[in-house]
Simulated assay, not measured.
Amino acid sequence: MTIAHSGSQPSAPGGTQRFTGQVCIDPLFQPEPPSRMSGGMVTFEPGARTAWHTHPLGQTLIVTSGRGWIQQLGHERQEIVAGEVVSVPAGVKHWHGATSTTGMTHIALQEALDGRNVN
């Protein structure tokens, strides 16, 4: 058993290749084989969001605070709020982030395939 103590891993800004606006990523845990699951807490300032992307084995988002949006390619944008859980199937192109006026934080859980958890 392992305990990942809060604050034991440094926060990092979201890079401009994967995000727009102000984003802070707090790593929560990395995969411990045979598991392929990793997790992070991502905080989006108002108006910040991810770029369009996919996950080879899907992604689960647990919204912990604020209000945000998520959009699947070819579909309407949907609002997400604290307490909601979003399951994104493998290979589905999407983006997610804060609304234009309210920040949003979520925990992102995803598995890696051949060492990659996002495309």
Rank of each mutant, 00 (worst) to 15 (best):
W52K: 14
V85H: 05
V85S: 12
H5W: 10
L113F: 10
P10S: 06
Q71E: 13
T43S: 13
Q71G: 01
G14K: 07
V81D: 02
G97Q: 02
L109F: 07
V42W: 00
M37G: 00
L61Q: 03
T54G: 10
V86Q: 04
T60E: 03
G66N: 07
L28G: 14
T101Y: 13
G7I: 14
G47W: 09
E76G: 09
L57Q: 07
M1Y: 09
G15V: 05
N117Y: 13
L73E: 15
P10H: 07
H53W: 09
Q22K: 15
T101M: 13
M37T: 14
T43M: 01
Q30C: 00
L57K: 11
D114I: 03
V81H: 07
H94T: 11
V23W: 08
E76S: 14
V42N: 01
R67N: 04
I70W: 03
V85Q: 11
D26E: 14
R49W: 07
Q9K: 10
P89N: 06
W95M: 13
I3C: 11
E84D: 05
G68K: 00
G7P: 15
L57R: 12
S8Q: 13
A4Y: 13
A90T: 08
H94G: 10
E76M: 10
R49Y: 05
S87F: 07
G39M: 01
F29Y: 10
G83C: 03
L73C: 12
G40I: 07
V63P: 01
A51F: 04
S35I: 02
E76R: 05
M41T: 04
T102Q: 10
G115K: 01
G83R: 08
P46F: 08
W52R: 15
W52I: 13
G97R: 01
P89Y: 03
P33L: 04
E45V: 04
E84Q: 15
N119G: 13
I107R: 07
E111Q: 08
P46Y: 09
M37N: 00
T64Q: 05
T102C: 08
G47M: 10
G14V: 06
V92Y: 04
L109Y: 02
G115Q: 02
N119W: 10
K93T: 15
M41D: 00
F29C: 04
E76I: 13
T50K: 02
E45N: 11
E79N: 03
A82H: 00
G7R: 09
L113W: 02
A90Y: 01
R77I: 14
S65A: 15
L57H: 03
Q9G: 09
L57T: 08
D26N: 15
G47A: 04
G103N: 04
M41F: 03
E79T: 15
E111D: 09
I3W: 09
G39N: 01
I3N: 13
L61K: 05
H106F: 01
G91I: 07
G7S: 11
H75R: 12
R36M: 06
P89L: 05
Q78T: 14
G74V: 14
T20H: 12
P33T: 13
P56S: 05
E111R: 06
